[in-house]
């Protein structure tokens, strides 16, 4: 018992009061609001608001599917580029120039990231100007719309920009921690070629080691806000943008839908966190 003092208990109590309890209370309030038990629209228990996502033209499920697809695509592209990078330029990532430069995208806040993608890939952006200089287009309108587009290409580009250095550095660290070089040498002694060593030893080990982080990254991208707010289309919207839009509307009838979005998002995130959690290495309690 000596290991836990009153100071530790006070700290934990503060953590509960400042973080866990408000979150639990607010989710309980959201659940109550969505079934008509609390809030300005409260008229007793009802499932009527929960029926809305199933009505034709409602955006909630479309928004969830869109968010999952965008997050999935961004994560897959990010992992592919980061793997390529760590396989081709691991030494530079360890302590070379790339190690320093890779910090730059990590220092990009969401608003700046969105601003940059807008400036680079909009109709009159840098990519369009390069295409103009190459004689591929004459007016900005001819440039394909990859920001504010219905496929979320701009959002995916933004998430890849910030995700690649993060995963490249993580893979570089895993390369050393999991002794992948030694395992590849072992594979070579039993006759594996270079491609086989990469495909059957290095990549599976890196992805296996990074799996919990990949899932947590997926959860984070599903809930990203600033980037789709500036780069997304009016429809479909990422779930965080839709939640905020419905929450901020003057039409109070939209508020229960905002809370339904929040509850569904919480359930989805908790499920994904639980998947990541099961694969994390947990140290034994030092009790």
């Amino acid at each position: 018992m000596l290991s836990r003092s009153n100071l530790d208990r006070a700290g934990f109590l503060l953590f509960l009061i400042l973080a866990i309890l408000p979150m639990a209370a607010s989710l309980a309030y959201a659940a109550g609001y969505s079934v008509g038990l609390v809030g300005l629209l409260s008229e007793g228990f009802t499932w009527q608001y929960w029926a809305r996502p199933f009505q034709e033209g409602n955006q909630i499920f479309a928004s969830f599917v869109f968010s999952l697809l965008v997050a999935g695509a961004a994560t897959a592209i990010t992992l592919a580029i980061a793997l390529l990078l760590v396989l081709a330029a691991r030494r530079s990532l360890d302590n070379g120039l790339l190690a320093h430069l890779s910090t730059i995208p990590l220092a990009l806040p969401g608003t700046v990231l969105a601003f940059l993608v807008l400036q680079w890939f909009s109709g009159s952006g840098i990519a369009a100007r390069i295409a103009y200089a190459l004689g591929l287009l004459q007016t900005p309108a001819q440039f394909p719309g990859i920001v504010h587009d219905q496929y979320g290409v701009g959002i995916i580009i933004a998430q890849v920009i910030v995700g690649v250095p993060f995963f490249a550095l993580l893979f570089a660290q895993l390369w050393h921690n999991q002794r992948i070089r030694q395992l590849m040498e072992l594979a070579q002694t039993i006759g594996a070629g270079r491609r086989q060593r990469v495909a059957w030893v290095a990549i599976p080990l890196l992805l296996h080691g990074a799996f919990p982080t990949v899932i947590l990254h997926l959860v984070a991208v599903i809930g990203v806000y600033e980037v789709p707010l500036l780069l997304g289309a009016q429809s479909p919207q990422m779930i965080s943008v839709l939640t905020m839009q419905k929450y901020g509307m003057f039409d109070l009838q939209q508020k229960p839908e905002a809370f339904i979005c929040a509850i569904l998002y919480t359930l989805l995130s908790l499920s994904l966190i639980a998947v990541a959690w099961r694969r994390m290495k947990h140290e034994q309690s030092p009790r």
């Binding site: 700290g11 979150m23 309030y29 965080s240 966190i273």
Partner: peptide
Amino acid sequence: RYVSYHRWRRGLLFLSYIPFVMSPVVLGAC
């Protein structure tokens, strides 16, 4: 420190992951 030496360490740590990973805006609306 309190969480680490608690018998419910794993459960309490799982709770900590919720604010860490989830969207501040979506939870913020609630």
